[in-house]
Simulated scan of single mutants.
Amino acid sequence: MASDERQGIQSVEVAMEVLTALEEARRPVSLSTLANLSGLQPSKVHRYLVSLVRSGLAAQEKTTGLYTLGSAVRRLGIEALRRVDEAGIASQHAIELRDRTQHTVLLVTWSDAGPTLIRWDYGAYPLPISVRVGSVLPLIDSSAGRVCYAYLPQAITKPVLRAQEKRGEARAYTDEELTKIVNDVRSTQVCITAGAIIPGLSVVASPVFGPGDGLALVLGFALPSRELTAPVTRRLSDDLLKASRLITADLGGQVKDPPAEAGQA
């Protein structure tokens, strides 16, 4: 019984290889290109394409004869996106990350009010702060906020930043300072602040991307600043990048290659 369950249907797996090749091509492609991408013989790819086109999972352009993904794939993709629970998926990784590193892990999403804390899992290190889920963080004076500012459109972030400055919740930054913050975050995909909001508290944050390459969430560590030595910074930055990439993949986002060096304080 167990053996039968493991066997599966090989033809379905091969068809998925062809569909994956169509997806990875990012454009309509020829039969020979699909064969190269999938590692299958052209004759075999053609046989599968006939069935995939009939089912609507693939399509062949009438004018060029090139192959692309079909309407059925688009319908499946839309429904899959509708069912994605970003916070739920990320939370599973956040708990594992907390248990493995023993450091407090946080998740932040964007709301109309700004960067909003949606999960805070305490670790083994006492923190000089009591955090309430649902709290709105400063946009530039927090690591998670800076990640949001770096990857979200300014049409969304600028009004929140100006409102926080007006209320005295953030100091005023020059355009040059803001540009440097964006460039620093994007160059490493990691943002670190020490004592920016609470004295003695450091936060390391990294972006999580969803479908369409847009920012979905921010994943981060919170720890006492005294614990953030250079070796710890490198290790936690690497752990964070790996976890962020795993969550991005689970959400259907485009996984980016990790930077050569991360975690520069």
Rank of each mutant, 00 (worst) to 15 (best):
L223M: 09
C191G: 07
L117Q: 09
K166S: 15
A249G: 11
G253T: 00
L40K: 01
A87V: 13
S30D: 04
Q154G: 15
A243P: 05
V84A: 14
D184M: 08
I156E: 11
A87H: 07
H103K: 12
A155S: 14
S11D: 14
L228G: 01
V208W: 02
L81Q: 10
H46T: 11
L81H: 03
K180Y: 14
K256D: 11
S91E: 10
I129L: 04
L66N: 10
A230H: 07
P153T: 14
S143N: 03
M1P: 12
G134Q: 03
S206D: 03
K180A: 15
P211V: 05
R75F: 15
I140M: 15
K166P: 05
R47Y: 12
D239N: 10
I118S: 14
R146H: 05
Q92Y: 15
L152E: 07
P259C: 00
I140E: 14
S30L: 04
P28I: 00
L81I: 06
I197Q: 14
R47H: 13
L161M: 03
L22N: 03
F221P: 03
F209C: 00
L34S: 04
A124C: 04
L178P: 07
E96I: 13
V12S: 14
G65K: 01
Q41C: 13
H103S: 10
N183P: 07
G252V: 04
D4A: 15
T64F: 09
R83G: 07
V108I: 00
A35Q: 00
R235G: 10
P138T: 05
L69D: 07
G200R: 00
G134E: 02
A265P: 08
Q10D: 15
R146E: 13
Y151M: 05
G8M: 03
V136L: 06
L40A: 04
S130G: 08
I118F: 12
A94V: 05
P159S: 03
V131C: 01
T233S: 08
I89N: 03
D141E: 09
Y149P: 10
L76C: 04
S30W: 02
Q60W: 02
I140Q: 13
Y151C: 12
